[in-house]
């Protein structure tokens, strides 16, 4: 590993009641790195992603993003101001888009700029238009989400997260709710972001994306990191039995990957 990592997660645990869903997770992410989390449903990969911006409160452990360090003691809630500061370093893209239906595409994108960052409206609008243009939807600026296709909604959601200019983008199965023919346009935007050097952590079942775009893959099973490595290592020579078993059916379908 080269310079100081942008993100460092140390000994992260998460319990849901008596259920131990994340068990002593530690990893780092370098600036400009694209990290993909893979694993079966229920493995804890989405929970891990959601712990990074405190949509789920970790039960214990330390999360460092940029210069923000949050240590969570078991049974003690982290300080609200620190949680907010961490959230502003992360941008989140949800499986179900979660656009605000009462706002136009542009209003969705500038909501955080105006309400949270207190940016003057004019400045926010020009920034919002820039990010809508980036995801190829400037012409939809005054359209409400209901008139957008699933792929367009997700691209607006990406623009909404990007507009806050976070240090890292978190993607939680961003294409899982999309019709097959709409997945490509969202993946294309994500590839473009990766090429531009956006730091990204992506939970996905799109193995094509994982192998083509990611710098590193982490395989999670039953709340533990089982294995991590470059896409080549993971896809062609998985070290662990479980990783091998998980990827086997996929390798049969996509032999080149």
């Amino acid at each position: 590993m080269n310079a100081d990592p942008l993100i460092q997660v140390d000994h992260l645990h998460k319990w849901f009641g008596g259920l131990h869903v994340l068990k002593d997770i530690s990893f780092t992410v370098q600036s400009k790195e694209v990290l993909v989390l893979i694993g079966r449903s229920g493995s804890g990969k989405s929970t891990l992603l959601r712990c990074l911006n405190f949509l789920e409160e970790p039960s214990s452990g330390t999360i460092t993003i940029g210069n923000q360090v949050v240590s969570i003691e078991p049974g003690r809630r982290p300080d609200k101001a620190i949680v907010l500061a961490v959230r502003l370093q992360t941008g989140m893209v949800f499986q179900e888009f979660n656009l605000f239906p009462h706002m136009t595409a542009l209003e969705n994108v500038i909501e955080g700029l105006v309400t949270v960052k207190k940016m003057p409206k004019e400045q926010a609008v020009s920034l919002g238009e820039r990010y809508l243009k980036k995801v190829g939807l400037l012409e939809k600026r005054d359209v409400h989400p209901i008139r957008l296709s699933g792929g367009q909604k997700q691209r607006v959601a990406i623009a909404r997260a990007l507009a806050m200019e976070p240090k890292v983008m978190l993607f939680d199965e961003p294409t899982s709710a999309l019709d097959p023919e709409l997945i490509g346009e969202v993946l294309d935007v994500m590839k473009q972001l990766a090429l531009e050097g956006t730091t990204m952590i992506v939970v996905t079942h799109e193995m094509g994306f994982a192998s083509d775009v990611s710098d590193r893959i982490i395989y999670i099973d039953q709340g533990k990191i089982i294995e991590q490595g470059t896409p080549e290592q993971i896809f062609t020579a998985p070290q662990d039995e479980r990783t091998h078993a998980f990827l086997e059916p996929i390798r049969k379908v996509h032999p080149t990957e």
Binding site: F94, V116, K117, A161
Partner: peptide
């Protein structure tokens, strides 16, 4: 969740 993720209180 979406509101929280862009920093709204």
């Amino acid at each position: 969740e979406a509101a929280a993720s862009i920093g709204l209180t």
